[in-house]
Amino acid sequence: MSPPLLSIRDLRVSFPTRQGIFEAVRGVSFDLGRERLGVVGESGSGKSMTGRAILGLVRPPGRVTAERMQLDGQSILNLPERRMRKIRGSRISMVMQDPKFSLNPVMTVGAQIIEAYRLHAGGAKAEARRKALEMLQAVQIRDPERVMGAYPHQVSGGMGQRIMIAMMLAPDPQILIADEPTSALDVSVRTEVLNIMDRLVRDRGMGLIFISHDLNLVAQFCDRVLIMYAGRIVETLPAQDLHRARHPYTQGLLNSLPRLDAPVARLPVLHRQDSWRDDLPEGL
């Protein structure tokens, strides 16, 4: 087995509050290879904070500690902002939930992609422009010339998210972190965006961390799934085995979803247990 792209041991993120230290992430460990890794959990489970910590985006007074956080064997834990900025974008990219808030509203789409590319790869403007067009084609935008000249408010949500993906993939990163990339999108658009992401990640041999609250979506889209609860990983499963999950939390989440193919009179409700917070996950 080749060495992992990203290796994380005992990652912790904490914030001081009036009631004492609050630990949003409490000892998360995993390795990411050239695979699609899903991270699933409810709001407050620490899944987004894990993604932000990897990218060095946890703002003070938040504190990130880890026994190990390595990208390709090189430590990226608490790097100075200047070096982190080089890594962000060129080696690890992130796609956020809502393209409305991630695109600059006063710059054309084309200018933003070109800028993103040149910031990391440098090169002539014409070259960057050619690359931008190529990227837009890669995310299946039919009329890339027109979209290049459009402003973010002139494109739809699904289109905006595809543009974000194009922008993030332009510098050929090794790892893409996608935080709820489709939850602001309609189902019909969602499939399309996922297809594009899937193909790009596979063709380029990238590692993908797909953060989502949607268990079923993750199970269908990813290779491997981490289930997080209260800042810890409670279970790690191959995606196709999700429905054979053993942890009661995972089972509870799966059962509480209403299903078209299996109607029930009452939805089973998740009964949280304190022991889930601290028990060690199985198989680790």
Binding site: T191, N195, R199, Q220, F221, L260
Partner: peptide
Amino acid sequence: ALRRGAGDDPYTRRLIAASAGYSRA
């Protein structure tokens, strides 16, 4: 009818198929 996926309109059927989840293209 929704559960059976039996919509009269093609859009309905598409919507039902899409919301059943993601299947790799």
